[in-house]
Simulated scan of single mutants.
Amino acid sequence: MEASTNNGKTVAIIAYITLIGWIVALIMNNKDKTALGSFHVRQALGIMCVGVILSIISGIIDIYILSRVVYLAVLVLWILGLISAAQGEMKPVPVVGEKFQEWFKGI
């Protein structure tokens, strides 16, 4: 049981390390699914999607201060998710974390 717990924590942390890390975490989690790993794979995917969407919007609007606020907000979500993963907790990121669990429940 402990190996599965450690694998879940490893998957959870790797999920936040770039898109490649997320893909590796997804593959690892599919081989040995854990609730913790699945939770953080969904959270990391949601944060990446929000980051891309907000970057596109801020690029279209092209307001310098808006793009800085967007990048800072995504960075804060990423840090909070990574801290939660490192602590082995299933704590959703603020505002949108619960939605990520709903939207990506198939993962």
Results as ranks from 00 to 15, higher is better:
19 L>I: 15
85 A>T: 05
105 K>V: 05
1 M>K: 13
105 K>H: 12
3 A>K: 09
45 L>C: 01
42 R>C: 00
62 D>E: 07
26 L>G: 04
62 D>M: 12
34 T>I: 13
83 I>A: 11
16 Y>G: 04
90 M>C: 14
96 V>F: 08
67 S>N: 15
99 K>W: 13
61 I>A: 11
83 I>E: 02
51 G>M: 06
81 G>F: 00
93 V>R: 04
1 M>L: 08
64 Y>E: 12
79 I>T: 10
49 C>W: 02
32 D>E: 11
105 K>R: 14
104 F>K: 09
32 D>M: 09
10 T>Q: 10
77 L>D: 04
70 V>M: 10
13 I>W: 01
33 K>G: 04
35 A>Q: 14
100 F>Y: 04
2 E>A: 07
101 Q>C: 05
104 F>P: 06
84 S>D: 01
33 K>R: 15
11 V>T: 08
40 H>Q: 05
67 S>C: 08
49 C>Q: 03
103 W>F: 12
37 G>L: 06
90 M>D: 01
60 I>M: 14
12 A>G: 03
80 L>P: 02
59 G>F: 06
32 D>Y: 03
56 I>Q: 10
81 G>P: 00
49 C>L: 15
84 S>L: 01
17 I>M: 14
68 R>Y: 10
16 Y>V: 01
62 D>N: 15
71 Y>V: 00
99 K>G: 03
77 L>G: 05
59 G>T: 07
103 W>L: 11
29 N>Q: 15
89 E>R: 13
31 K>Y: 05
87 Q>T: 10
27 I>A: 15
17 I>E: 05
76 V>S: 09
50 V>F: 03
34 T>R: 06
33 K>P: 15
51 G>F: 00
59 G>D: 09
18 T>H: 12
16 Y>T: 05
61 I>Y: 15
18 T>R: 12
7 N>R: 13
23 I>K: 12
44 A>V: 05
17 I>S: 05
78 W>C: 05
30 N>Y: 07
26 L>N: 10
15 A>P: 04
92 P>Q: 08
15 A>V: 05
86 A>D: 07
62 D>H: 11
64 Y>V: 11
86 A>K: 10
73 A>Q: 00
4 S>Q: 13
16 Y>H: 02
74 V>I: 13
104 F>H: 02
28 M>E: 01
67 S>D: 07
9 K>E: 00
2 E>L: 11
9 K>G: 00
99 K>V: 05
93 V>T: 13
